[in-house]
Design a protein around this nucleic acid. Structure first.
Lengths: 347, 347
DNA sequence: ATTCAGGGGTGAATCGGTTCATTCCGCTGT
DNA sequence: ACAGCGGAATGAACCGATTCACCCCTGAAT
């Protein structure tokens, strides 16, 4: 049983004293054991064990500079899409013995900035960021200060920064084409703020789909901004649509949701209101999260290669190691894929 | 536009030189602005801005000791239960301007140990841990070395460590009583390894429910260990049950799943195999995650106060601040609640 | 015997902040 | 004119590791 008293952390010099060697030797035991004779090494290791010595990471890092931690900031940790991406990141990092620190910005640039500062102050090797706004200037500055930066689920507007993303315009277009093909001409889009690129792009894709079908978006597309990008936000937005439109008249016959959590809220609302899916209202989501296929009405959704996205982004980050300005940055883009299920298909 | 060259981080003495003051003054501007005359303060702030100075967290922490970061280690970041708990933690921490570093142990004690070490080396203020095994000795040692520790979703076996948990025996019992009341006498339990307390306790609760109904668990309860505690694990376990039992004979008429992700996998499997829920097989999950009520067959589940759990745990951690050994530790326990839906109810 | 090589170990300098005893300076009161 | 005072600024010591120039010693080579 360990003691219950809180004693001060012991330092490398405590170990050195107890083992009867110099601090330099202890440091060598820690970092280059082969440079130390077996007998002294054992003495030192004994002392380490006896004192329960744990090296002070701050001191080590202060002197040595580099470190094997990377930070990641995603928009919403409650969204399975992002946790799957995080899993992909972790898997790639683990291959090089790096560890991940995960944080959620909740789409708030201020929170994002706070975490970036935290990461930078602690000297992470790099950061993977899903930007919560278009202003990537802070990220460029961060990079200029020596922190590797890779944009995640975003495409870099400048060539000298790497990014991994999924084509969201194509995703929106897939959804739009599908709905149009199903004969819908009044479509609602429950979206997030256009300050978020993903939202803007998916909207653009939807617009493009309508236009290429000869439908004027300004009359055939109704965009609603959800108060939050989760199930509750979806419910609120759906209720707003129901409250401001009349069935059979101006009410949309299909609703496209910016993600599956929103779609979940929409389905919940429609069930409570006894509105038939897809008969009265077709529903399409985005992300194809794990439960999408098992919902009361299995959800049509746009699938993204989540794990791959995270994995590749981490790879881009690790590749920059030590390359400095010489590194050839890459903008990787994956393609989404439509998974059609009962929520939008009349057959 | 920022420059594209990677320059070295500037330090406090660079700022001091540029502003024409001493390093001490710069430090004061940073930490106690009121001790500095407005004119010098402005000069220093100018210099900071011009150099894009970001204080080195390692150095600061090395000298100052304390810090406002806490670490949390959960079993599976892909499980909405844990992300909701994390949200609760974050909310409480934010009130005191602390920030959260989140990590996932994947139920692997070794990964847990790695993250604990990482957190300790970086001198976090404390850690919240969902233990991946019963051996909390490492955590006690960690505490003895001065890191505050609170057990999350676990009850401390020793009185001098705080914890916040939900009564899992009661949860298992709720599920068991319900299934028995519905007339089931052959029940399968898709569980995780008993090295995880939650799994053990839920099992104990189920056993207790059967016994109090006069049913011998050894013949009426079939426990299967899922290879992983997610949808894929649930699917594998369910297929194993189907492969080793015969409908109408020894096949269970109800299956209790250790969490909702597993239940999701079970539902998926049963749908593919055209087995009716709850007619041929009733399904009960655990956690009542956001999508539980919207599944094809709405899922009966044991609800836990996730947000509250995280919030309270964080509170317990923050309360220990500076109290040292004098602190009166607390073992908080919440009660779960059964939410009955169509997946287990014949009415 | 002398030189040399090199393994093993030493300890002071260093990283970039915080802290605090000390100095500096301008102003008031007598 | 001078002691006294207090706000502002200084700069050296310190936190705990890493690093590296240097020393010691033993055994091999000349």
């Amino acid at each position: 049983m360990s003691t219950t008293t809180t004693r001060k952390r012991s330092s490398i010099s405590d170990v050195a004293r107890l083992a009867g060697v110099s601090v330099g030797t202890v440091s060598n035991v820690l970092n280059r054991p082969d440079r130390v004779s077996p007998s002294t090494r054992e003495r030192v290791e004994d002392a380490i064990a006896r004192l329960q010595f744990v090296p002070n990471g701050s001191a080590r890092q202060l002197r040595a500079g580099t470190i094997t931690t990377v930070g990641a900031i995603v928009l919403d940790i409650g969204n399975p899409f992002f946790t799957e991406v995080a899993r992909g990141i972790e898997d790639r990092l683990a291959e090089d013995d790096f560890t991940l620190m995960l944080a959620s910005s909740d789409e708030d640039p201020e929170r994002e900035a706070r975490y970036l500062k935290l990461f930078e102050e602690h000297g992470v090797h790099g950061v993977l960021v899903v930007p919560s706004s278009d202003d990537i200037e802070p990220l460029l500055e961060l990079r200029a200060r020596g922190v590797n930066v890779v944009l995640l689920d975003a495409t870099s507007p400048v060539p000298d920064i790497s990014s991994a993303a999924v084509n969201d315009v194509a995703g929106g277009q897939l959804a739009g084409n599908h709905l149009v093909a199903q004969g819908h001409t009044r479509i609602a889009f429950i979206n997030g703020p256009h300050s978020i690129r993903q939202c803007r792009d998916r909207h653009a894709g939807m617009v493009r789909a309508l236009e290429s079908a000869g439908l004027d978006p300004s009359t055939h597309l109704l965009e609603i901004t959800a108060p939050s990008l989760n199930a509750d936000g979806g419910e609120a937005a759906m209720r707003q649509i129901l409250a401001t439109t009349t069935a059979g008249l101006d009410r949309p016959t299909a609703v496209f949701c910016v993600n599956d959590l929103v779609a979940l809220g929409v389905q919940r609302t429609l069930r409570k209101e006894h509105i038939d899916i897809p008969g009265e209202l077709a529903v399409v989501g985005y992300d194809d999260v794990n439960f999408a296929g098992e919902l009361a009405i299995p959800l049509t959704s746009v699938r993204q290669p989540t794990h791959q996205l995270g994995y590749r982004a981490a790879e881009l980050l690790l590749a920059q190691h030590g390359q400095g300005d010489r590194f050839r940055h890459e903008q990787v883009q994956f393609q989404p894929e439509l998974v059609v299920r009962a929520s939008s298909s009349t057959t």
